[in-house]
Each structure stands twice: as structure tokens, then as C-alpha cells.
Write a protein that binds this DNA or RNA. Structure first.
Length: 478
DNA sequence: TTTTGAGTTGTTCGA
DNA sequence: GTCGAACAACTCAAA
């Protein structure tokens, strides 16, 4: 008798409830990962996520070997592969940690029902949230749509459970079932655009712990003021690790508390509380995705269905390639392309630009982010884009339109960030770095810039675009 | 049922 | 240069 542990977005040994329960039961444990993009539907992992997944699976495989176990890889339909494994290994139990994406929820439910009918002990656990979506509700027993009351309710519900430590030993079966090679998943694309990812990231459980330690020991102290400055490392950079479950929010929450109790300085505690609040934004995103599953493809506010977005392929391409002529926007899009990640402040700026300046459907932006971000996460991506578009829960008011120049001046005053990602404008003086189109001819010449040649002219006039967007949004109201 | 207070991240204009 | 108001109601959640 043995137990299959079906790993998905919980690629870690520490604080892994499904794995822990399987080990506790005392039977041999067979960890398995199934590559099954088909059944994940439209929002299956994109290219950048695949790069990460490849590294993460390699790491997980090694960690399992170090505790006397092994990661069995399979590809194909999840249900069929699980059934095959059950037959091959005579397993009588299948454990996994839950996921919350609409199509995955439906698939998993179907599998669980079928396994139970077949007499298999199928159990799922909470491995990736502090508060599961159905445990938090308003006094009127409805889901929350506003963050602050949601967060208050979460806090009032009590502290998250303590994380479980990683197993030191996992009981192996007498014979292992067949596993395919990781390269059969064909996760790494033929175009080698991901070189920059390798320098930037250390996927895997130990990489996640190191990132957390670095953040709590160093960067968190300037979190509240620094997290908006894209040129410095003041954010945790844990998003891809969290997405793939290389670290759990429980581990993060408790690590913060532990450090808080030790540090005891008012400043540290305040800064770290700001960070924990962001962790709950992730929870809120999952809450919304679970209760409003249609929001991955449809605006939560129905009147936005009839918004007249422009079909402007050329502008969309310019945005994707970081060639809009607005340095802060272009820098962000290029950071994304080269590192698979973009600073949060800049995500808002580029999103606002696509939606409000170019009047392009937020879903186009969501799709691009989905394919190019290593931390692409359906809950966070959906909430973020709908928030900027103003069509989601607790969204930004429609008149809140980011001015790319003002935002650049405010959060990248010295131009360190734009210079890093747009080397061709590196010699433009600070005064003009965020608006080269207004710089005097001789300044541009000295800096080696020829607008329209080696750096684009602005794709649109922001002041004009802003007025237009306000008109369109006002029309929606009427 | 009605009332009340509040709501992540902004910009512009005019005094 | 700085500061407060306007932008525009609307929806949510709790009392």
C-alpha cells in the first residue's frame, strides 16, 4: 500500500500539508508531477513560467532524492496518468494541495469524485493560502469586494497555522513506477530570450528561502518608502516563488512574526506590517478569483463589456517591445522582457498607459503579462489588470490616470531605472530623461539621440490621450 | 430597511 | 513652489 502525492503549484518539501499527511500515514510515498497543459485550459502556463517550472522541477527532484525519495514525472491527461500510476503502484491514497483557478478547480473536483468512486482515498489540503476563499465572508454571508474590510476580517479570524517543517526522510516504495525525462515536457523554448532570467533568479525552495532571508535581514527596513522605487531592491521579489509554491505564505507570515519578536523596533515592525498587508492582497486576489471565476476573461463590472477598446495592433506591439517613446513605460516593458519580471510600481504605469493612453483592452495586457512574467499568477494578474482598468472589485476610480512623465520624475527622479533598461538614452540629462521629446535639439544631439531614429517619438500625446480616456469613461457611465 | 462612513498605489488647476 | 480642492458619484459592508 502506498500514497501518491500529486504535486502541482506546491513545489517544496517544507510546509507541504499533502506531503506531510502522506508521510504521517506511514505508507511509502510516491511524489508525482504531471505535465498536463491541456486540462488547465486557456490559462495554462506561458513561456516565461515554463522556464521557471523547468528549474523548479529540477530542484525539487534533487531535494526529494536527498531525503531518500524521487520525483516521478508524467505527461498527459492528469486523470489518466493518476489512474495508470494507481494501477502500477497499487496506491490506495492520492493526496494533493488545492488550487483555485476556475478550470483547475473543475478538473480537480472531477478527478476527486472519480477516485472516490473507485475506492481511492483522495484528499486535498490547503498549501498555498493563509485563508481559503470560502472561509472569509461578510456579515451578509457574501464574498468581500473591498480589500480593507476583507483584511480586517482575515486578521480577526486569527493567526495563520504554523508551518510544518520539511521531512528528513521519506519512505520509498519497494519499486518506483516509470518516470519520463524532464526534457520530454519541452518547457524550454527554442528562442533563447531567457538568458537574462538565469542571472536574475534562483528558482527552487532554497532560492526562495534565501530571497526571504535577504529581504527580512536587509531590505524590509525600507519597504514602505522604497517599494515604489524601481531602481532599488526594496521589494521581496518572492512572487514567482509564491506562485510555484516554493515557499508558502504561512512560512513567510511566521518568519516575519519571529523576526518581529526578536527585533522589537517600532520601525521594523511597521515596515514589515506593510509587507504582510501585501501578502493579504494576494489572498484577496484568490478570494475574488474563486468567487468570481468569470473575471479572468470578463470585467467584474458588467457595463465595461461594452467599452469601445481600440484594435490597434501597431500600438500594442510598440508597447510590448518597449518602444512607446515614454521612457518609464519602455524601461518597464524591457525589464519584463529581459528578466521575466517587472517592478510593481512600473506594472501600474505600463498598464495605465496601455489602457488609458492607448485605449487598448486590459485583456491584451493581461495576456502579454501572462506569457512573459515568471510570476504570472491568474489571481494576481486578473485583479491587477481589472484594478487599473477600473472594471474590477475595489478598483481605481476612472479618473485616476497615470502620467508617465510625472510618475517617472516622482519614482525614478535620477533616471537610474530608465537608464539601466534603455541604454540608448543614458546620456540624456536628468531634467529631460523622462521627456526626451521636450529636450532642446542640442541637448539631444550631445546625448546622441535622434528621435524617431534611435529612440521613438511619443506614440501618443499624453495630455490629449488623457482627455479622450476621460470622455470614453464618462460615456460608459451615461 | 435605512443610514453611515469609507474606499492601495493620481493628476491637474488655481489660489 | 506649495497646497487644497475637484475630478463624480457609486458601491460596499456594517451598524
Amino acid at each position: 500500500m502506498s500514497c501518491l502525492v500529486w504535486l502541482r503549484l506546491d513545489l517544496r518539501l517544507g510546509d507541504n500539508p499533502a506531503l506531510f499527511e502522506a508521510i504521517k500515514a506511514g505508507d511509502p510515498v510516491i511524489p508525482v508531477y504531471i505535465h498536463d497543459p491541456e486540462s488547465e485550459g486557456k490559462w495554462r502556463h506561458g513561456s516565461a513560467s515554463h522556464w521557471w517550472l523547468q528549474q523548479s522541477l529540477e530542484k525539487l527532484s534533487k531535494s526529494l532524492e536527498s531525503v531518500g525519495s524521487k520525483l516521478i514525472l508524467r505527461r498527459g491527461d492528469s486523470q489518466r496518468e493518476l489512474n495508470k500510476l494507481i494501477q502500477e503502484t497499487r496506491a490506495e491514497k492520492v493526496f494533493w494541495n488545492r488550487r483555485y483557478e476556475p478550470e483547475v478547480v473543475a478538473r480537480d473536483k472531477k478527478i476527486k469524485d472519480a477516485l472516490k468512486v473507485a475506492g481511492i482515498d483522495a484528499q486535498s489540503f490547503n498549501g498555498s493560502l493563509l485563508t481559503e476563499p470560502w472561509t472569509i465572508q461578510t456579515g451578509g454571508k457574501t464574498p468581500f469586494k473591498v480589500f480593507t474590510p476583507y483584511w480586517n476580517k482575515c486578521v480577526a479570524t486569527g493567526d495563520p497555522d504554523a508551518p510544518i517543517s520539511a521531512p528528513k526522510k521519506i519512505l520509498a516504495p519497494s519499486a518506483w513506477p516509470k518516470s519520463c525525462a524532464l526534457k520530454e515536457f519541452a518547457l524550454i523554448p527554442s528562442i533563447k530570450w531567457y538568458d537574462g532570467f538565469t542571472r536574475e533568479w534562483r528558482p527552487g525552495e532554497s532560492g526562495a528561502q534565501e530571497e526571504l532571508d535577504l529581504f527580512l535581514n536587509k531590505n524590509v527596513i525600507q519597504y514602505l518608502s522604497g517599494r515604489d522605487i524601481p531602481s532599488i531592491r526594496a521589494t521581496s521579489r518572492l512572487s514567482p516563488h509564491l506562485h510555484f509554491g516554493e515557499i508558502s505564505p504561512r512560512q513567510i507570515w511566521h518568519a516575519v512574526q519571529k523576526k518581529s519578536a526578536k527585533t522589537k523596533t517600532v520601525g521594523w515592525i511597521k515596515q514589515s506590517e506593510g509587507f504582510v498587508r501585501q501578502l493579504y492582497w494576494r489572498e484577496f486576489a484568490y478570494h475574488l478569483l474563486y468567487h468570481f471565476p468569470q473575471t479572468t476573461d470578463h470585467p467584474l463590472r458588467k457595463e465595461f463589456e461594452k467599452f469601445e477598446w481600440k484594435k490597434d495592433i501597431k500600438s500594442l506591439k510598440a508597447w510590448q517591445q518597449g518602444k512607446t517613446g515614454y521612457p518609464i513605460v519602455d524601461a518597464g516593458m524591457r525589464e519584463l522582457w529581459h528578466t521575466g519580471w517587472m517592478h510593481n510600481r512600473v506594472r501600474m504605469i505600463v498598464a495605465s498607459f496601455l489602457i488609458k493612453d492607448l485605449v487598448i483592452d486590459w485583456k491584451e495586457g493581461a495576456r502579454w503579462f501572462w506569457d512573459t512574467l515568471v510570476d504570472a499568477d491568474l489571481a494576481n494578474n486578473t485583479l491587477g489588470w481589472q484594478w487599473v482598468a477600473g472594471c474590477g472589485a475595489d478598483a481605481a476610480p476612472y479618473f485616476r490616470i497615470f502620467n508617465p512623465f510625472t510618475q517617472g520624475e516622482k519614482f525614478d527622479g535620477e533616471g537610474a531605472y530608465v537608464r539601466r533598461w534603455i541604454p540608448e538614452i543614458a546620456n540624456v540629462p536628468n531634467k529631460w530623461i523622462h521627456r526626451p521629446w521636450e529636450a532642446p535639439a542640442e541637448v539631444l544631439k550631445t546625448a546622441g539621440i535622434e528621435l524617431g531614429k534611435n529612440y521613438p517619438r511619443p506614440l501618443v500625446d499624453h495630455a490629449h490621450a488623457r482627455k479622450l480616456a476621460l470622455v470614453l469613461y464618462a460615456r460608459l457611465k451615461a
